[in-house]
Nucleic acid binder design. Structure first.
Lengths: 157, 157
DNA sequence: TATCTGGGTTCGCATGTCAAACCCAGAGTC
DNA sequence: GACTCTGGGTTTGACATGCGAACCCAGATA
């Protein structure tokens, strides 16, 4: 990514205002200690209140509030289900919008695996057809990966 | 991404424990209201305490603490600089590790741009050689993008 | 000597987080 | 038809963290 070390004038302001930057908006929505972890669980398929609670060790009140927010912002959907003759209950599953977050989560995971961990993660992300391991990268519209050195980031005027 | 809608037994536990999941570790490090936004500013090249403060509207004490943590975890580096004859000061710039977070940030940005915003972001991420717009995707080792439907996610035993 | 500026630290109050206790609907049980 | 169990919550009150405003400090400038 273009990051001139040269001693030009320092950047004083982000080129994109916060309220028009998708990343900043995403951070506002996902940026707290639990929300990302809840989405991660949902991504793994954990969908029930008590399972989430047990798996994450999150307080009930916080989990309740975060789930409400995630449903409200369309990342999770609340689905009714019944198990045998039990009464109807609800679980929380990724919506289309939530599933689309997968790439960002994987990118974060691969970064964490590279930099924050000694042992490699036990999670394998592969091409279903060939079994080849997959990595997050920037690609051109015809699907070719581009080296970091060839990536240009610039704000439109 | 493989997300079976079928009525199989629900997943009760994440397949990867939190202390061995790069994503969870990354969330522990970056998961609060400000840290990601600070990294975003650094990514844009904003590097000085007061510029960060003005741009983000973050309280001084919090900014100071977050910068310390980010330097401590090796995402930012504190560099001395001097401007003209002024005394030596310090600014905060992405380290190699921090620069490597770029992909995850871009993934998050593109998700936010797609789902959280009406107007497209003014930020253009392009191939320096051809000018083609770039997108985050999963690629095989030889650099070919793989469609989401062909991606398989599974934990090793 | 006084002042300005970048880069902080220190305050006291407001807000958020937490664990534990409580609630509640319906199914099974006696 | 009272009792209890279970999933999925809400309430409560102590504690931690966040916040803005005020203060500090070093060196350059006036």
């Amino acid at each position: 990514m273009s990051n001139p070390e040269s001693a030009t004038a320092p950047v004083r302001r982000a080129p994109v205002p916060r309220d028009r930057c998708g990343m900043a908006l995403a951070c506002d929505m996902l940026g707290d200690r639990w929300t990302m972890l809840i989405v991660r669980e949902a991504f793994y398929g954990v969908s029930r209140f008590d399972d989430l609670r047990a798996d994450l060790g999150i307080p009930r009140g916080i989990l309740s509030a975060r789930l409400k927010a995630l449903v409200g912002s369309g990342v999770l959907e609340r689905h009714p289900y019944r198990e045998g003759s039990a009464r109807v209950r609800h679980d929380y599953r990724l919506s289309e919008r939530g599933r689309d977050l997968g790439l960002a989560l994987i990118a974060l995971m691969q970064w964490g695996d590279r930099h924050l961990q000694e042992a490699p993660s036990p999670l394998r992300i592969t091409d279903r057809r060939t079994g080849a391991p997959l990595q997050v990268a920037l690609v051109t519209p015809d699907g070719r990966a581009v080296a970091a050195a060839d990536v240009d980031v610039a704000a439109e005027v």
